[in-house]
């Protein structure tokens, strides 16, 4: 099951990035979560045919990757892997919408192609923003941020448990799958029957594990309420971070620097 191992490694790599020590990593996670939300809303609030106005938004992922010293190639590969799913639906746009909207010299571009490209750019922007959020913040911190922003505690705690045991169980599942693969030849033995009992026994083991965890919690004085320490402070750097990015996104939403730039440059030469 090379694919499971690979997926796990990939997961862990992204997870480890969050252990970085840049100034960005040290910010209160709430600021980072909020900025990403403002970013996402700004990006998707553009009309269907917008393309050039979306491009300046790449400044956000680029600056963050630079500041936090994240591996750009790795993140780009991850983003590229996801984009086809958005394109599956977007690719129909050129077929449906063939009306010519833009002329680039001799080339005429239909609205469909424009909106399809717009979908692609949106996907690149939104996906990279999400990945960068994880890579600079880390999942547990995101959970805490969301909890402080009003997410119910039960849900937050449950998320932390999920995250904690994800690696444990994925490895356990991976071992079981490997054992099945080694004893099956071709597609024989990989069918639904063996799958169901494999997953079934994984489920039972998981359940027992949950019981043991609960035992370990009781042994340490757990009485039903989770006590969580607070260790972040929403100070001036956070405030600055949130305000400056939000202001920039609003500005980029209202004015299109690509257009302005282009007009200026082509004006110079004509």
């Amino acid at each position: 099951m090379a694919s499971i191992d690979a997926a796990l490694l990939d997961f862990q790599r992204l997870d480890r990035l969050a252990a970085g020590s840049s100034a960005l990593h040290r910010l209160d996670p709430r600021a980072k979560v909020l900025v990403v939300l403002v970013f996402l809303v700004s990006v998707i609030s553009f009309g269907r045919y917008q393309l050039s106005a979306l491009l300046p938004f790449f400044v956000f992922p680029a600056v963050l990757i630079g500041c936090a010293d994240l591996p750009a190639g790795y993140l780009a590969r991850k983003v590229a892997l996801v984009c086809p799913f958005a394109l599956v639906v977007g690719i129909f746009n050129p077929l449906v919408d063939t009306e010519i909207m833009v002329h680039l010299g001799p080339v005429a571009i239909s609205g469909g192609w424009l909106s399809c490209a717009s979908i692609l750019v949106r996907a690149l922007l939104t996906v990279s923003a999400a990945l960068i959020l994880v890579a600079t913040t880390g999942f547990p911190a995101i959970c805490r941020a969301l909890e402080q922003l009003g997410m119910p505690k039960v849900f937050a705690v449950q998320l932390l448990f999920l995250y904690r045991y994800l690696f444990v169980l994925a490895e356990e599942g991976g071992r079981a799958a490997r054992a099945r693969e080694l004893r099956s030849f071709g597609n024989k033995g990989q069918g639904m029957a063996s799958y169901s009992s494999l997953i079934g026994s994984l489920l039972l083991k998981t359940w027992q594990r949950a019981e043991r965890i609960h035992m370990a919690m009781l042994a340490r004085g757990f009485t039903g309420a989770f006590q969580v320490r607070q260790h972040y402070r929403f100070g001036r750097p956070e405030f600055l971070y949130l305000c400056s990015w939000s202001a920039l996104f609003v500005l980029l939403r209202l004015f299109n620097p690509a257009e302005l730039f282009g007009a200026f440059l082509t004006g110079l030469f004509s």
Binding site: M1, S3, I4, A7, V154, V157, Q158, L159, L160, F161, L162, Y163, R164, Y165, L166, V168, L169, A170, E172, G173, G174, A176, A177, Y195, L198, I199, L202, L203, T206, W207, R209, A210, I213, H214, M217, F226
Partner: peptide, 17 residues
């Protein structure tokens, strides 16, 4: 609560197989 979390992780693992 721990059961839900761990079962979530289980579902995650199961979806990889």
């Amino acid at each position: 609560v721990p059961l839900m979390g761990v079962l979530g992780a289980f579902l995650f693992a199961a979806q990889m197989i």
